[in-house]
Design a binder for these strands. Structure first.
Lengths: 184, 184
DNA sequence: TCCATGCGTTCGCCTTGACGAACGGCGCTG
DNA sequence: CAGCGCCGTTCGTCAAGGCGAACGCATGGA
Protein backbone atom coordinates (compact mmCIF):
# COMPACT_ATOMS: atom_id res chain seq x y z
CA UNK A 1 0.00 0.00 0.00
CA UNK A 2 1.19 3.42 -0.81
CA UNK A 3 -1.78 4.63 1.16
CA UNK A 4 0.14 7.80 1.63
CA UNK A 5 -2.50 10.29 2.56
CA UNK A 6 -3.56 11.73 -0.79
CA UNK A 7 -4.26 15.04 0.82
CA UNK A 8 -0.59 15.61 1.55
CA UNK A 9 0.32 14.57 -1.95
CA UNK A 10 -2.20 16.99 -3.38
CA UNK A 11 -0.95 19.72 -1.12
CA UNK A 12 2.60 19.18 -2.34
CA UNK A 13 1.58 18.97 -5.98
CA UNK A 14 -0.40 22.15 -5.65
CA UNK A 15 2.53 24.07 -4.25
CA UNK A 16 4.93 22.56 -6.75
CA UNK A 17 2.80 23.25 -9.81
CA UNK A 18 2.04 26.75 -8.68
CA UNK A 19 5.73 27.42 -8.16
CA UNK A 20 6.45 25.99 -11.58
CA UNK A 21 3.95 28.38 -13.13
CA UNK A 22 5.47 31.23 -11.16
CA UNK A 23 2.14 32.42 -9.87
CA UNK A 24 1.13 33.74 -6.50
CA UNK A 25 -1.41 31.99 -4.37
CA UNK A 26 -3.79 34.88 -4.76
CA UNK A 27 -3.40 34.86 -8.52
CA UNK A 28 -4.10 31.16 -8.86
CA UNK A 29 -7.08 31.45 -6.56
CA UNK A 30 -8.48 34.28 -8.62
CA UNK A 31 -7.97 32.46 -11.92
CA UNK A 32 -9.51 29.30 -10.56
CA UNK A 33 -12.41 31.18 -9.06
CA UNK A 34 -11.82 29.81 -5.59
CA UNK A 35 -11.27 31.72 -2.40
CA UNK A 36 -7.63 32.15 -1.67
CA UNK A 37 -8.33 31.03 1.86
CA UNK A 38 -9.42 27.70 0.46
CA UNK A 39 -6.29 27.35 -1.60
CA UNK A 40 -4.17 28.33 1.34
CA UNK A 41 -5.67 25.56 3.43
CA UNK A 42 -5.26 23.04 0.66
CA UNK A 43 -1.61 23.82 0.19
CA UNK A 44 -1.11 23.42 3.90
CA UNK A 45 -2.57 19.95 3.74
CA UNK A 46 -5.60 20.93 5.77
CA UNK A 47 -9.05 20.04 4.63
CA UNK A 48 -10.57 17.66 2.15
CA UNK A 49 -11.24 19.45 -1.11
CA UNK A 50 -14.12 18.71 -3.42
CA UNK A 51 -13.75 17.73 -7.03
CA UNK A 52 -15.09 21.03 -8.24
CA UNK A 53 -12.40 22.88 -6.35
CA UNK A 54 -9.60 20.64 -7.54
CA UNK A 55 -10.84 20.75 -11.09
CA UNK A 56 -10.89 24.53 -11.11
CA UNK A 57 -7.35 24.56 -9.79
CA UNK A 58 -6.20 22.08 -12.41
CA UNK A 59 -7.61 24.25 -15.15
CA UNK A 60 -5.97 27.33 -13.69
CA UNK A 61 -2.63 25.55 -13.40
CA UNK A 62 -3.06 23.91 -16.79
CA UNK A 63 -2.36 20.42 -15.56
CA UNK A 64 -4.05 17.06 -15.67
CA UNK A 65 -6.33 16.07 -12.87
CA UNK A 66 -4.43 12.92 -12.04
CA UNK A 67 -1.18 14.83 -11.82
CA UNK A 68 -2.22 16.06 -8.43
CA UNK A 69 -2.02 12.63 -6.88
CA UNK A 70 0.38 10.60 -8.98
CA UNK A 71 3.77 10.78 -7.30
CA UNK A 72 6.69 11.98 -9.40
CA UNK A 73 9.86 9.92 -9.12
CA UNK A 74 13.02 10.42 -11.13
CA UNK A 75 15.63 7.68 -11.45
CA UNK A 76 17.90 6.16 -14.02
CA UNK A 77 17.38 2.47 -14.59
CA UNK A 78 19.08 0.23 -17.10
CA UNK A 79 18.06 -3.29 -17.98
CA UNK A 80 20.36 -5.10 -20.40
CA UNK A 81 19.12 -7.24 -23.26
CA UNK A 82 19.16 -10.46 -21.33
CA UNK A 83 18.38 -9.01 -17.94
CA UNK A 84 15.09 -8.42 -16.30
CA UNK A 85 12.33 -10.74 -15.15
CA UNK A 86 11.52 -12.86 -18.17
CA UNK A 87 8.26 -14.62 -18.83
CA UNK A 88 8.59 -17.70 -21.00
CA UNK A 89 5.70 -19.29 -22.77
CA UNK A 90 5.09 -22.98 -23.37
CA UNK A 91 3.04 -22.23 -26.44
CA UNK A 92 5.90 -20.97 -28.55
CA UNK A 93 9.47 -19.88 -28.46
CA UNK A 94 8.52 -16.66 -26.83
CA UNK A 95 9.98 -14.43 -24.19
CA UNK A 96 8.59 -11.27 -22.75
CA UNK A 97 10.47 -9.05 -20.37
CA UNK A 98 8.77 -6.47 -18.27
CA UNK A 99 11.02 -3.46 -18.22
CA UNK A 100 8.78 -0.83 -16.69
CA UNK A 101 5.72 -1.20 -14.57
CA UNK A 102 3.76 1.10 -12.35
CA UNK A 103 4.08 -0.22 -8.83
CA UNK A 104 0.83 -1.43 -7.30
CA UNK A 105 -2.02 -0.99 -9.72
CA UNK A 106 -0.26 -0.70 -13.01
CA UNK A 107 -1.33 1.80 -15.60
CA UNK A 108 1.27 1.19 -18.24
CA UNK A 109 3.55 -1.82 -18.52
CA UNK A 110 6.35 -1.83 -21.05
CA UNK A 111 7.41 -5.22 -22.42
CA UNK A 112 10.22 -6.29 -24.66
CA UNK A 113 9.29 -9.31 -26.79
CA UNK A 114 11.36 -11.95 -28.53
CA UNK A 115 9.36 -14.52 -30.44
CA UNK A 116 10.17 -17.40 -32.75
CA UNK A 117 7.84 -18.73 -35.43
CA UNK A 118 5.21 -21.13 -34.17
CA UNK A 119 1.54 -21.46 -33.52
CA UNK A 120 1.56 -18.04 -31.93
CA UNK A 121 0.68 -16.86 -28.50
CA UNK A 122 -3.00 -16.36 -28.00
CA UNK A 123 -4.09 -14.18 -25.13
CA UNK A 124 -7.48 -14.25 -23.55
CA UNK A 125 -8.87 -10.85 -22.63
CA UNK A 126 -7.18 -8.95 -19.85
CA UNK A 127 -8.84 -6.34 -17.72
CA UNK A 128 -11.49 -4.34 -19.55
CA UNK A 129 -10.14 -1.06 -20.78
CA UNK A 130 -6.71 -2.47 -21.41
CA UNK A 131 -5.03 -1.31 -24.58
CA UNK A 132 -1.92 -2.89 -26.00
CA UNK A 133 0.58 -1.08 -28.20
CA UNK A 134 3.15 -3.03 -30.21
CA UNK A 135 6.10 -1.74 -32.17
CA UNK A 136 7.82 -4.42 -34.17
CA UNK A 137 11.61 -4.22 -34.05
CA UNK A 138 12.85 -7.02 -36.25
CA UNK A 139 11.33 -9.94 -38.10
CA UNK A 140 7.72 -10.26 -39.10
CA UNK A 141 4.64 -11.09 -37.09
CA UNK A 142 0.88 -11.48 -37.08
CA UNK A 143 -0.44 -9.24 -34.35
CA UNK A 144 -3.73 -7.85 -33.16
CA UNK A 145 -7.21 -9.11 -32.51
CA UNK A 146 -7.70 -12.80 -33.15
CA UNK A 147 -10.63 -11.88 -35.35
CA UNK A 148 -8.56 -9.64 -37.58
CA UNK A 149 -4.82 -10.06 -37.11
CA UNK A 150 -2.46 -7.75 -38.95
CA UNK A 151 0.91 -8.62 -40.43
CA UNK A 152 3.57 -6.33 -39.09
CA UNK A 153 6.99 -5.55 -40.54
CA UNK A 154 9.93 -3.93 -38.78
CA UNK A 155 8.94 -0.49 -37.55
CA UNK A 156 5.24 -1.17 -37.81
CA UNK A 157 3.01 -0.18 -34.95
CA UNK A 158 -0.37 -1.45 -33.89
CA UNK A 159 -2.72 -0.72 -31.04
CA UNK A 160 -5.72 -2.81 -30.11
CA UNK A 161 -8.05 -3.43 -27.17
CA UNK A 162 -6.44 -5.89 -24.80
CA UNK A 163 -9.77 -6.93 -23.37
CA UNK A 164 -10.59 -8.86 -26.51
CA UNK A 165 -8.94 -12.10 -27.65
CA UNK A 166 -5.70 -11.26 -29.38
CA UNK A 167 -2.48 -12.91 -30.50
CA UNK A 168 1.17 -12.46 -31.32
CA UNK A 169 2.52 -14.89 -33.89
CA UNK A 170 6.04 -14.56 -35.24
CA UNK A 171 6.53 -15.33 -38.92
CA UNK A 172 10.30 -15.17 -38.91
CA UNK A 173 13.07 -16.20 -36.54
CA UNK A 174 14.39 -13.55 -34.24
CA UNK A 175 11.28 -11.46 -34.22
CA UNK A 176 11.43 -8.72 -31.61
CA UNK A 177 8.96 -6.10 -30.51
CA UNK A 178 8.11 -3.62 -27.83
CA UNK A 179 4.73 -3.98 -26.18
CA UNK A 180 3.07 -1.37 -24.03
CA UNK A 181 0.15 -2.68 -22.04
CA UNK A 182 -1.98 0.19 -20.93
CA UNK A 183 -4.39 -0.64 -18.13
CA UNK A 184 -7.00 1.99 -17.68
CA UNK B 1 -11.25 22.99 -23.42
CA UNK B 2 -12.63 19.60 -22.75
CA UNK B 3 -14.40 21.21 -19.86
CA UNK B 4 -16.68 18.25 -19.85
CA UNK B 5 -18.14 18.32 -16.38
CA UNK B 6 -15.81 16.05 -14.44
CA UNK B 7 -18.64 15.04 -12.17
CA UNK B 8 -20.42 13.25 -14.97
CA UNK B 9 -17.22 11.57 -16.03
CA UNK B 10 -16.59 10.41 -12.50
CA UNK B 11 -20.12 9.17 -12.21
CA UNK B 12 -19.73 7.12 -15.36
CA UNK B 13 -16.35 5.76 -14.35
CA UNK B 14 -17.70 4.80 -10.98
CA UNK B 15 -20.53 2.81 -12.46
CA UNK B 16 -18.28 1.26 -15.09
CA UNK B 17 -15.56 0.21 -12.69
CA UNK B 18 -18.02 -1.18 -10.23
CA UNK B 19 -19.68 -3.20 -12.97
CA UNK B 20 -16.28 -4.43 -14.06
CA UNK B 21 -15.53 -5.64 -10.54
CA UNK B 22 -18.94 -7.25 -10.42
CA UNK B 23 -19.77 -5.69 -7.09
CA UNK B 24 -23.00 -4.25 -5.80
CA UNK B 25 -23.32 -0.64 -4.82
CA UNK B 26 -23.82 -1.65 -1.22
CA UNK B 27 -20.77 -3.87 -1.27
CA UNK B 28 -18.51 -1.19 -2.69
CA UNK B 29 -19.85 1.34 -0.22
CA UNK B 30 -19.16 -1.00 2.66
CA UNK B 31 -15.64 -1.80 1.49
CA UNK B 32 -14.86 1.85 0.92
CA UNK B 33 -16.34 2.83 4.24
CA UNK B 34 -18.72 5.34 2.73
CA UNK B 35 -22.45 5.50 3.06
CA UNK B 36 -24.17 3.80 0.19
CA UNK B 37 -26.39 6.81 -0.08
CA UNK B 38 -23.33 8.84 -0.89
CA UNK B 39 -22.19 6.42 -3.54
CA UNK B 40 -25.65 6.30 -5.00
CA UNK B 41 -25.68 10.05 -5.42
CA UNK B 42 -22.23 10.06 -6.93
CA UNK B 43 -23.11 7.45 -9.51
CA UNK B 44 -26.13 9.48 -10.46
CA UNK B 45 -23.92 12.48 -11.11
CA UNK B 46 -25.35 14.40 -8.21
CA UNK B 47 -23.10 16.12 -5.73
CA UNK B 48 -19.51 17.13 -5.59
CA UNK B 49 -17.47 14.47 -3.81
CA UNK B 50 -14.47 15.14 -1.64
CA UNK B 51 -11.07 13.64 -2.21
CA UNK B 52 -11.38 11.42 0.82
CA UNK B 53 -14.53 9.89 -0.55
CA UNK B 54 -13.12 9.35 -4.01
CA UNK B 55 -9.91 7.95 -2.63
CA UNK B 56 -11.74 5.43 -0.51
CA UNK B 57 -13.74 4.35 -3.55
CA UNK B 58 -10.61 4.02 -5.66
CA UNK B 59 -9.04 1.77 -3.06
CA UNK B 60 -12.19 -0.31 -2.85
CA UNK B 61 -12.36 -0.63 -6.62
CA UNK B 62 -8.62 -1.17 -6.89
CA UNK B 63 -8.10 1.49 -9.50
CA UNK B 64 -5.93 4.52 -9.93
CA UNK B 65 -7.23 7.86 -8.85
CA UNK B 66 -6.81 9.48 -12.22
CA UNK B 67 -8.74 6.68 -13.90
CA UNK B 68 -11.93 8.22 -12.63
CA UNK B 69 -11.55 11.21 -14.89
CA UNK B 70 -9.42 10.03 -17.82
CA UNK B 71 -11.67 8.79 -20.59
CA UNK B 72 -11.08 5.27 -21.94
CA UNK B 73 -11.21 4.67 -25.65
CA UNK B 74 -10.71 1.38 -27.54
CA UNK B 75 -9.82 1.21 -31.22
CA UNK B 76 -7.53 -0.57 -33.59
CA UNK B 77 -4.95 1.62 -35.22
CA UNK B 78 -2.09 0.65 -37.51
CA UNK B 79 0.74 2.88 -38.58
CA UNK B 80 3.16 1.37 -41.10
CA UNK B 81 6.91 1.73 -40.84
CA UNK B 82 7.10 4.79 -43.04
CA UNK B 83 3.74 6.24 -42.15
CA UNK B 84 2.82 8.62 -39.39
CA UNK B 85 3.77 12.19 -38.65
CA UNK B 86 7.54 12.23 -38.74
CA UNK B 87 9.79 14.71 -37.02
CA UNK B 88 13.15 15.19 -38.68
CA UNK B 89 16.11 16.72 -36.96
CA UNK B 90 18.72 18.99 -38.44
CA UNK B 91 21.27 17.90 -35.91
CA UNK B 92 21.64 14.38 -37.22
CA UNK B 93 20.14 11.83 -39.49
CA UNK B 94 17.30 11.27 -37.11
CA UNK B 95 13.65 10.60 -37.42
CA UNK B 96 11.08 10.21 -34.71
CA UNK B 97 7.53 9.17 -35.33
CA UNK B 98 4.81 9.70 -32.83
CA UNK B 99 2.65 6.64 -32.91
CA UNK B 100 0.48 7.11 -29.85
CA UNK B 101 -0.37 10.21 -27.93
CA UNK B 102 -2.98 11.06 -25.38
CA UNK B 103 -5.28 13.67 -26.91
CA UNK B 104 -5.12 17.08 -25.26
CA UNK B 105 -2.56 17.11 -22.49
CA UNK B 106 -0.55 14.01 -23.18
CA UNK B 107 0.43 11.65 -20.47
CA UNK B 108 2.32 9.06 -22.44
CA UNK B 109 3.72 9.48 -25.93
CA UNK B 110 5.12 6.53 -27.79
CA UNK B 111 7.83 7.26 -30.38
CA UNK B 112 9.57 5.12 -32.91
CA UNK B 113 13.14 6.27 -33.55
CA UNK B 114 15.50 5.80 -36.46
CA UNK B 115 18.88 7.41 -36.04
CA UNK B 116 22.12 7.45 -37.99
CA UNK B 117 25.54 8.04 -36.47
CA UNK B 118 26.40 11.67 -35.90
CA UNK B 119 26.89 14.24 -33.21
CA UNK B 120 23.75 13.02 -31.55
CA UNK B 121 20.55 14.74 -30.68
CA UNK B 122 20.70 16.75 -27.49
CA UNK B 123 17.45 17.59 -25.81
CA UNK B 124 16.95 20.34 -23.36
CA UNK B 125 14.68 19.52 -20.43
CA UNK B 126 10.99 19.00 -21.10
CA UNK B 127 8.27 19.51 -18.55
CA UNK B 128 9.26 18.64 -15.00
CA UNK B 129 8.27 15.13 -14.08
CA UNK B 130 8.75 13.81 -17.58
CA UNK B 131 10.35 10.40 -17.81
CA UNK B 132 11.62 8.86 -21.00
CA UNK B 133 11.87 5.15 -21.63
CA UNK B 134 13.94 3.82 -24.49
CA UNK B 135 14.15 0.29 -25.85
CA UNK B 136 16.84 -0.12 -28.48
CA UNK B 137 15.77 -2.25 -31.43
CA UNK B 138 18.78 -2.43 -33.70
CA UNK B 139 22.20 -0.83 -33.87
CA UNK B 140 23.99 0.78 -30.98
CA UNK B 141 23.52 4.13 -29.28
CA UNK B 142 24.58 6.42 -26.48
CA UNK B 143 21.45 7.28 -24.54
CA UNK B 144 20.47 8.90 -21.27
CA UNK B 145 21.41 11.94 -19.28
CA UNK B 146 24.04 14.14 -20.89
CA UNK B 147 25.99 13.92 -17.67
CA UNK B 148 26.13 10.15 -17.71
CA UNK B 149 25.12 8.63 -21.05
CA UNK B 150 24.86 4.86 -21.36
CA UNK B 151 25.76 2.72 -24.33
CA UNK B 152 22.82 0.60 -25.39
CA UNK B 153 22.81 -2.57 -27.46
CA UNK B 154 19.84 -4.18 -29.19
CA UNK B 155 17.21 -5.08 -26.63
CA UNK B 156 18.63 -2.79 -23.97
CA UNK B 157 16.29 -0.59 -22.03
CA UNK B 158 16.90 2.66 -20.21
CA UNK B 159 14.74 5.12 -18.32
CA UNK B 160 15.79 8.59 -17.28
CA UNK B 161 14.27 11.88 -16.17
CA UNK B 162 13.27 13.88 -19.23
CA UNK B 163 13.42 17.14 -17.36
CA UNK B 164 17.20 17.03 -17.33
CA UNK B 165 19.47 17.50 -20.33
CA UNK B 166 19.69 14.22 -22.23
CA UNK B 167 20.74 12.86 -25.59
CA UNK B 168 20.36 10.11 -28.15
CA UNK B 169 23.43 9.45 -30.24
CA UNK B 170 23.55 6.54 -32.67
CA UNK B 171 26.85 4.66 -32.93
CA UNK B 172 25.90 2.52 -35.89
CA UNK B 173 23.91 2.97 -39.09
CA UNK B 174 20.30 1.92 -38.99
CA UNK B 175 19.86 2.35 -35.27
CA UNK B 176 16.24 2.03 -34.23
CA UNK B 177 14.51 2.37 -30.91
CA UNK B 178 11.19 2.81 -29.22
CA UNK B 179 10.81 5.80 -26.94
CA UNK B 180 8.04 6.31 -24.43
CA UNK B 181 7.83 9.84 -23.13
CA UNK B 182 5.87 9.84 -19.94
CA UNK B 183 4.57 13.24 -18.90
CA UNK B 184 3.43 13.22 -15.32
C1' DT C 1 -47.69 -17.58 0.70
C1' DC C 2 -45.00 -15.16 3.78
C1' DC C 3 -40.99 -13.56 5.55
C1' DA C 4 -36.02 -12.79 5.10
C1' DT C 5 -32.21 -10.97 2.60
C1' DG C 6 -30.00 -7.86 -0.35
C1' DC C 7 -30.43 -4.38 -3.71
C1' DG C 8 -30.60 0.86 -4.91
C1' DT C 9 -32.97 5.18 -3.82
C1' DT C 10 -34.80 8.97 -0.89
C1' DC C 11 -35.15 11.74 3.39
C1' DG C 12 -33.58 14.77 7.76
C1' DC C 13 -29.64 15.69 10.68
C1' DC C 14 -25.09 17.24 11.36
C1' DT C 15 -20.51 17.84 10.27
C1' DT C 16 -17.40 20.20 7.10
C1' DG C 17 -15.73 22.61 3.08
C1' DA C 18 -15.88 27.03 0.64
C1' DC C 19 -16.40 31.74 1.02
C1' DG C 20 -15.49 36.68 2.20
C1' DA C 21 -13.51 39.87 5.50
C1' DA C 22 -10.12 41.15 8.37
C1' DC C 23 -5.33 40.60 9.88
C1' DG C 24 -0.11 40.90 10.04
C1' DG C 25 3.98 41.10 7.09
C1' DC C 26 6.82 42.78 3.29
C1' DG C 27 8.39 45.92 -0.54
C1' DC C 28 7.96 50.05 -3.04
C1' DT C 29 6.92 54.99 -3.77
C1' DG C 30 5.95 59.76 -2.78
C1' DC D 1 8.09 57.46 7.50
C1' DA D 2 3.49 57.15 6.41
C1' DG D 3 0.76 55.26 2.62
C1' DC D 4 -0.34 51.92 -0.67
C1' DG D 5 -0.47 47.38 -2.79
C1' DC D 6 0.10 42.62 -2.71
C1' DC D 7 1.30 38.67 -0.32
C1' DG D 8 -0.32 34.51 2.59
C1' DT D 9 -2.87 33.26 6.82
C1' DT D 10 -6.79 33.07 10.12
C1' DC D 11 -11.64 33.69 11.64
C1' DG D 12 -16.81 33.49 11.46
C1' DT D 13 -20.76 32.41 8.57
C1' DC D 14 -23.42 29.66 5.41
C1' DA D 15 -24.43 26.28 2.16
C1' DA D 16 -23.41 21.57 0.77
C1' DG D 17 -21.59 16.86 1.41
C1' DG D 18 -21.65 12.70 4.00
C1' DC D 19 -24.12 9.89 7.07
C1' DG D 20 -27.66 6.65 8.95
C1' DA D 21 -32.50 5.34 8.84
C1' DA D 22 -36.35 4.30 6.42
C1' DC D 23 -38.43 3.11 2.10
C1' DG D 24 -39.85 0.36 -2.22
C1' DC D 25 -38.45 -3.32 -4.94
C1' DA D 26 -36.85 -7.96 -6.56
C1' DT D 27 -35.31 -12.73 -5.19
C1' DG D 28 -35.56 -17.16 -2.90
C1' DG D 29 -35.98 -20.29 0.81
C1' DA D 30 -39.19 -22.25 4.60
Amino acid sequence: MDSKAPLDVIAGSLRRERARAGLSLSEVAKRAGVAKSTLSQLESGTGNPSVETLWALCVALEIQFGDLIDPPRPKVQVIRAHEGPAIYSEQADYSATLVASCPPNARRDLYRLTVSPGPGRKSEPHMPGTIEHVVLGTGRALVGLSSEPVELHPGDYIAYPGDLPHLFQALEPNTTAVLVSETS
